[in-house]
Write a protein that binds this DNA or RNA. Sequence first.
DNA 1: AATATTTATCGTAATATTACAATATAAAAT
DNA 2: ATTTTATATTGTAATATTACGATAAATATT
Lengths: 110, 110
Amino acid sequence: MGATKTDHFTAKQNAIATLIKSLGHPARVAIIEYLLKVDTCICGDIVNELPLAQPTVSQHLKELKNAGLIKGNIDGNAICYCIDEKAIEKLQSYFAGISSKLAKQKNNCC
Amino acid sequence: MGATKTDHFTAKQNAIATLIKSLGHPARVAIIEYLLKVDTCICGDIVNELPLAQPTVSQHLKELKNAGLIKGNIDGNAICYCIDEKAIEKLQSYFAGISSKLAKQKNNCC
DNA sequence: AATATTTATCGTAATATTACAATATAAAAT
DNA sequence: ATTTTATATTGTAATATTACGATAAATATT
């Protein structure tokens, strides 16, 4: 096996898991944090920032893009990347929701 | 290859990526959501709730436990699981931090 | 004590992910 | 036009993940 049984879960569960998973790698966390740090879009500078080969970085960028976490606009020779706020908001509100539900729990054990 | 190059990233980046990754699977999302839904700890009921074989569920529970997302207390014959609030808080504040930083950005392009 | 119940572990097959060299593509600069 | 620069794609090796049958371990029930 090895293939996730997505058909056994709800669409929402699969969607949030896919979004979360896209950030479940230090290189992709580093990419997001770098985009955040420079405080603007970045056109052609990400590869030099990461300790990985260019095809590997390109692959990670593709995954973040597919998941909707970043947007990429072609800017002449380079590609201009930035974070997609909507995806971050989704993640934030998802965990905020869990957190607030947890706060209301009775905590009978544990 | 196939092995993540954790040594090239910061401890913080690796730690948050590991935590995030543990929720990057619909089965584990479903487990957390179930624990949230029942509004209390669950002793011996998770396997029946999920559309997966018992060893698979056990494996997913182990991953959530290793990541610190859930706690498990032995309760006689069964094991009593519940969400670890601290881990959820970490996730929540991480994304809240990204979100607030994003809000302050100039958005020069994209 | 024997049996049932619950969860964990082992072994393993199928698939996915990670990483990178080699190469391709496409626009910019010379 | 040729070369340089920036990114993507292809191919592939190494490793990780997912899933589950078989089995073990540990407590509960009879």
